[in-house]
């Protein structure tokens, strides 16, 4: 990093932290501290919701995903707008009418204390671990690419987040706005520079055509397949259920719209998110597709994770890697010649020549991908702790190598902003659930508001330190990123099932709902362990099994009770 990068990076982060600390002053009551006094308007709610979902991994990994696999990941978000409408109709009015602090507080009024406690506990486990990973994952990637100390980076991000989050929800929501704008601004600047860095005779449309012919603009796949994670149907159904669960039952998101001054403001925030989310993810993936187009004319490294590459150079596998690199270079020369022919054919409008160049370039691309897989295997062999998943390193590797001074600092600030925004909501919601659903419910029921504000600050600090520790003990980032999604999907379906019962099945009571949740969790764990059903579908399984099991148990309990009653009557 050059001096100007450091200036941009540090100034951005310091200004955001100061702004958050200033916005979080005078938070005397628990309602003010945890729900910003329920005074938020819809633009802040909407941006806060979006900033919560957009973690650093969104900005690091999503462009890499488009580079490696194309844009089909965008389909994961297609169910989200439907979920926003359903939640606006069903959940928002209930949460506002009951004036709850957490989503789980509602479950006690609907079912009873055991369902509330089980669901809140599942949330604390899942969110506690995943918040740690949302700090650690970007820390490890940034530190590897820039050669920073991983522990200092992890602790540094953690401290910045604690500084803002401990000032309460108002500070979190207001800094979310700045963080999201900076993160998206950084991506826009990156896109403009990528397009300007293309060869002079290659326009944006040419680059899009090249990326499309090479299979990177595959936004919609109509083919239904339970084993592929991203197609239109898994996105609408599986992605929709994930969104319902995440926005309706996950306190990290529910807390964002509980801050609305009226139910209408909360609804508008959710609906705006529903309108913007798909285009926003499309844009981030498109940046990745354009990085791919750029690397059709400029040779990409065989492996983007430069630290892993450097480590391998010191081992017995160095010679084998050099051989792969030579193959990669030769393959690239042949491929770029075909891509050049493709561009000339596009300019000439010669469809036969386009088809022929595309077929050749695609074959060479497959060879490149197979060489990259061999390189990843060598990287793993050379050091079992190294990260062999290169997807997360593509975008940052490109930024550091090809973007001008100042912009690198801006992109890094964007990534840190995204890490801070997602994690701040995590800590904020963990503190609320710990204090409202556990401490205030079971330990200090009659304590004064001041006491609970202090308890919330201590809980925020505790979960912040816990997140830093999770990062310090985590090792493999590649598998961790996937693990965050998979691990969350173990719980999301179950939690969603409990809320579906609460909202739509009024006959089901506390005992049946608790057992339904336990059975659903067990079934999802079995499905995850013993079948190869893609993780997006676990949410549907968890929700469906939980609802059905609770209904069957409720029916058995009712018929058991009525037989006892009729038995007593016959005595």
């Amino acid at each position: 990093m050059r001096t100007i990068d450091w200036v941009v990076f540090i100034t951005t982060l310091v200004l955001i932290v100061i702004y958050g600390i200033w916005k979080g002053r005078k938070q005397k009551s628990l309602e003010n501290y945890l729900l910003a006094g329920r005074t938020m308007r819809w633009p802040t709610i909407a941006l806060s919701i979006m900033a919560t979902q957009a973690s650093a991994i969104t900005f690091l990994s999503t462009p890499g995903q488009a580079y490696v696999d194309g844009m089909r990941f965008v389909q994961f978000y297609l169910g989200l707008p439907i979920a926003m409408v359903l939640l606006s109709i069903v959940a928002v009015p209930i949460y506002h009418r009951l004036k709850v602090y957490t989503a789980y507080e509602y479950l006690e009024t609907r079912f009873g204390v055991s369902t509330r406690t089980i669901t809140a506990t599942l949330f604390l486990i899942q969110r506690g671990i995943s918040t740690g990973l949302t700090v650690y994952a970007p820390a490890v990637i940034v530190s590897l690419v820039l050669g920073w100390n991983i522990h200092l980076t992890n602790v540094g991000i953690g401290i910045l987040i604690i500084l803002i989050t401990i000032r309460g929800t108002k500070a979190v929501s207001h800094t979310h706005v700045q963080q999201l704008l900076i993160a998206m601004g950084g991506m826009l600047v990156a896109l403009i520079i990528i397009v300007r860095s293309l060869p002079h005779d290659v326009s944006l449309i040419d680059a899009m055509k090249v990326a499309g012919h090479m299979g990177r603009l595959n936004a919609i796949d109509l083919h239904f397949d339970l084993k592929t994670p991203y197609n239109l149907w898994s996105g609408l159904i599986g992605g929709g259920l994930v969104a319902l669960s995440y926005f309706g039952c996950d306190q990290a998101q529910v807390q964002r719209y509980l801050t609305g001054e009226t139910a209408e403001q909360s609804r508008l925030g959710l609906l705006f998110n529903g309108m913007i989310k798909v285009p926003m993810q499309f844009f981030i993936l498109f940046v990745g597709a354009m990085v791919f187009a750029f690397f059709q004319f400029v040779a990409p490294p065989l492996f983007f994770n430069s630290a892993a590459r450097a480590n391998l150079g010191k081992t017995q596998y160095a010679a084998q890697y050099d051989k792969l690199e030579a193959m990669h270079r030769a393959n690239f020369s042949a491929k770029t010649a075909e891509v050049r022919k493709m561009v000339d054919a596009i300019h000439a409008g010669d469809s036969a020549a386009i088809a022929s160049a595309t077929a050749n370039a695609r074959a060479l691309q497959q060879r490149e991908e197979s060489t990259r897989r061999e390189a990843a295997t060598l990287i793993k062999k050379s050091d079992t702790h190294s990260d062999d998943n290169d997807t997360n390193y593509v975008f940052l590797g490109f930024v550091v190598r090809y973007l001008p001074a100042g912009v690198v600092g801006l992109i890094l600030a964007s990534i840190f902003c995204a890490a801070m925004s997602a994690t701040a909501s995590g800590l904020n919601s963990l503190a609320s659930t710990t204090v409202v659903d556990v401490y205030r419910r079971f330990i200090a029921r009659d304590a004064h508001d001041d006491h609970h504000v202090l308890a919330s600050k201590m809980a925020t600090f505790f979960w912040g330190v816990f997140s830093i520790f999770v990062g310090e003990f985590a090792t493999h980032v590649g598998s961790l990123v996937e693990a965050v999604n998979r691990f969350g999907s173990l719980f999301y379906g179950t939690i969603l099932g409990v809320f579906v019962l609460a909202f739509f099945f009024t006959a089901v009571g506390d005992v049946a709902a608790s057992w339904g949740a336990a059975i659903s969790l067990a079934v999802v764990i079995l499905v995850a362990l013993f079948t190869n059903i893609a993780w997006l579908w676990w949410n549907a399984v968890g929700c469906g099994v939980g609802v059905m099991a609770a209904m069957v148990i409720q029916k058995m309990m009712v018929s058991g009770q009525s037989s006892v009653v009729s038995g007593q009557e016959s005595l």
């Binding site: 926003m84 409408v85 606006s88 109709i89 499309g212 936004a219 919609i220 609804r267 309108m275 798909v278």
Partner: peptide, 30 residues
């Protein structure tokens, strides 16, 4: 139709249009 119902309709219509546009985008650049 009140204001909220209009908003719900707009969000869902936008989703259908987005899917249609994404499909056309995929086809146009495939």
């Amino acid at each position: 139709m009140n204001r909220l119902h209009r908003l719900y309709t707009i969000v869902l219509v936008e989703l259908v249009l987005t899917i249609a546009l994404l499909y056309l985008f995929t086809r146009a650049f495939a």
